[in-house]
Design a binder for these strands. Sequence first.
DNA 1: TATATTTGTGTATTAATTACGCTTATAGAT
DNA 2: ATCTATAAGCGTAATTAATACACAAATATA
Lengths: 228, 228
Amino acid sequence: MLQNIRIAVDAVVFGYQHGELYVLLIKQKFGTEEAYWALPGGLVLNDEALIDAVKRELKEETNVEVNYLEQLYTFGDDINRDSRNRVISVAYFVLIDSSKTLIKADTDADNVQWFAIKEVPQLAFDHKLILNTALARLKAKLTYQPIGFDLLPEEFLFSELENLYCTILEKEIDRRNFRKKILSFGIVEETDRFSEKKGGRPAKFFKFNKKKYKQLDKEGFHFEIRFA
Amino acid sequence: MLQNIRIAVDAVVFGYQHGELYVLLIKQKFGTEEAYWALPGGLVLNDEALIDAVKRELKEETNVEVNYLEQLYTFGDDINRDSRNRVISVAYFVLIDSSKTLIKADTDADNVQWFAIKEVPQLAFDHKLILNTALARLKAKLTYQPIGFDLLPEEFLFSELENLYCTILEKEIDRRNFRKKILSFGIVEETDRFSEKKGGRPAKFFKFNKKKYKQLDKEGFHFEIRFA
DNA sequence: TATATTTGTGTATTAATTACGCTTATAGAT
DNA sequence: ATCTATAAGCGTAATTAATACACAAATATA
């Protein structure tokens, strides 16, 4: 009997704004059934690399500019995760700087939307499971890889970085120790720009030196942010 | 155009014996071409979960008893990784206690064999890439999850555990600090059995308390073995 | 009984983490 | 101009963890 299994890719795209973690969803219309929100994704073309399939779908459906992308997990244990056919989904984990991404000028914006992670609606298929898997990956990786920077603008304030960690990890941090530790790595540099926010001492903008990080990483350096 | 992509699973099965890391390979015969050694695996059945497919293939081809199994990575970026058809492979990472596994009494043993990791022959398809990915995973995970125990017999000597770490990570360790650290976790317990090896002070056998580890893990404990 | 071999243990030094509070620069109100 | 509120920036002492390092104990064999 010939194999009759389809292969799709789906992307969990995280963004961070106004002190909140967001995920990007699209409105999935299938048949006459109720429209569910779903992760962006779709079937892989015959002559298309998996990674190109995700990139294509992201471009077509949402037009986001990707800062970080890696394979997350392949979902294929539940035979009926898609009720129409057997579909195996290779899920990807994506981080973007949502401040610079204008979602989809070209498609109707109603169908693509950011949802605060605490306010995600019911999702199609097993997409909730995929999202939860991605969230676990995000939390884990944040502590041992400098991926937090991929959720922020190129130049950011320490308070923003700190809030990002607190928010996503749902933990309190000592502001001073956090700053000290990050700076001790030598992968974050201060700029000469200052925040123009009112009502307090102006804050310096900083930026992440990715090149420096990659070099240190090669030399055996371990990034790690962990809190009691 | 209909999707025409096949989906397979492959397993990288690691074992550890006589102070060496081994990988399990099978002889792949296809057509009249030269037989290559390859990772155990094969196509997924239409109504079969991915994980069941790996387990089935492992059972059919090698008959090993699995101690640890997790999804490794899905290889589907190289369109031509299999020259016959487009095949996407979901690779799995498997650890076994090779001392208790008798490989394949039922199939001809010539076709299933352990290879020391330094002596792996040329492999079929992109299996070398898959193996390297698994090896990287093994090295990384050894430092932050107690998976070394899944390569050892239920009861083991400290010297064996220590050698396993040294061998796989290709690093020297201070014997005393290593022991102190492992014991400080409280997840390894001494038994009352002693080694009967000759020529030195007899060594106590220890065993890993998995239940205890899982509990500590839930409480926020972090296993970590890292060396300068 | 002496020698070789492997296991088992302790401590001092150094480095990293944690806990903690005051000063500075700005905006806005008076 | 002065006062108040707000957030940023900085330093140090106390605690905890990691590292470096050497000798004693138990066995087998000569």
